[in-house]
């Protein structure tokens, strides 16, 4: 079983559309994991039917037991996050501001404060319209993605892949370079970097590749919208050469990507031309590389 993670430092490069396309091409050989929990859009293309859903708890926030509280205000005095405001003469916790450090809990003289696990959203196991399993999650408002949630989604998909003897786990990775993307990459067999030839695209590609390098992972790159700016595309290709990253493909700027998404399809189902062939070839290359 091989884990393939698709990431892109920057938003809007077409990462999710490409991941969903690979998911369709891999078909029943793969379990799909959507670890881009902040903008979990893959379900819009794969139209899953939820089979199992569970709450997800992550991090802690403070809670004041009103019966025990003597309103001394020591908690508010030590809090650095303005999370213990006084409302109608009583100290309360502002849950949006609370960082979960637990300092207030430690200094409360009457033990009126306890840290509670926070319900940050739900995670699901679903069957997609093409018959493979998708593990995904939905965060509540202001809830932050974490290494923990990504690890959960990945672990569940791994369990299923092992149980059902699947060849691949295809993971839509988290954005940025923080804890969630570290967790997305951890344990991967192959990384597909999706980028676009803009100044910010190249910059973000370099940043995220630093992480990939640190973990010693084998990687390839798909340059999307490559004909938008040939100058930057050439710079990206040079970067790939210098870093021994496989240049999987250069895809053209093509509105069929958006049109396919609009009707809820992936590009290989919607488009029967050159673009489809290119993506089929991408998947063949990824398979070769990973095996």
């Amino acid at each position: 079983m091989k884990e393939i993670v698709i990431i892109s430092g920057k938003g809007g490069t077409g990462k999710t559309s490409i991941t969903a396309t690979l998911a369709v091409l891999a078909g029943k050989n793969a379990v799909i994991a959507d670890c881009d929990v902040d903008a979990a859009d893959m379900h819009l293309l794969l139209k899953p039917v939820v089979e199992k859903s569970e709450n997800f708890f992550s991090g802690v926030i403070a809670k004041i037991d009103k019966d025990k509280c003597i309103n001394c205000g020591i908690c508010a005095g030590v809090c650095r996050f303005k999370a213990v405001p006084i409302v109608n003469g009583k100290y309360i916790i502002n849950t949006l501001n609370c960082e979960g450090c637990g300092y207030c809990e430690k200094v409360c003289p009457v033990n009126a404060i306890n840290m509670h696990e926070q319900d940050v959203g739900d995670w699901y196991i679903s069957k997609t319209r093409i018959g493979n399993t998708l593990v995904h999650a939905k965060l509540g408002i202001a809830a932050e993605n974490s290494g923990k949630l990504v690890a959960k989604v990945k672990n569940e998909s791994k369990k299923i892949a092992e149980r059902e003897n699947k060849k691949y786990i295809i993971i839509d990775g988290s954005p940025g370079i923080g804890c969630p993307v570290v967790s997305s990459l951890s344990g991967a067999n192959y990384v597909v970097l999706v980028t676009e030839p803009s100044l910010s695209g190249l910059h973000d590609l370099k940043r995220v590749h630093e992480l990939v390098k640190k973990f010693n992972l084998k990687a390839g790159c798909i340059i999307n919208k490559s004909d938008i700016n040939l100058n930057v595309t050439n710079k990206i290709i040079q970067f790939l050469k210098d870093e021994s990253i496989k240049h999987i493909a250069s895809l053209p700027y093509d509105e069929n990507f958006t049109k396919a998404m609009t009707v809820g399809e992936t590009i290989v189902e919607y488009d029967h031309s050159e673009l489809k062939d290119l993506l089929v070839e991408c998947w063949e290359i990824v398979k070769q590389e990973v095996n």
Binding site: T16, A39, D41, L44, I141, T258, M261, G264
Partner: peptide, 17 residues
């Protein structure tokens, strides 16, 4: 697009909050 709409609804909910 569907992606745009989905992410917009989340952003709107946040603004309402």
């Amino acid at each position: 697009t569907p992606f745009g709409l989905h992410d917009l609804t989340l952003a709107v909910e946040t603004m309402k909050e």
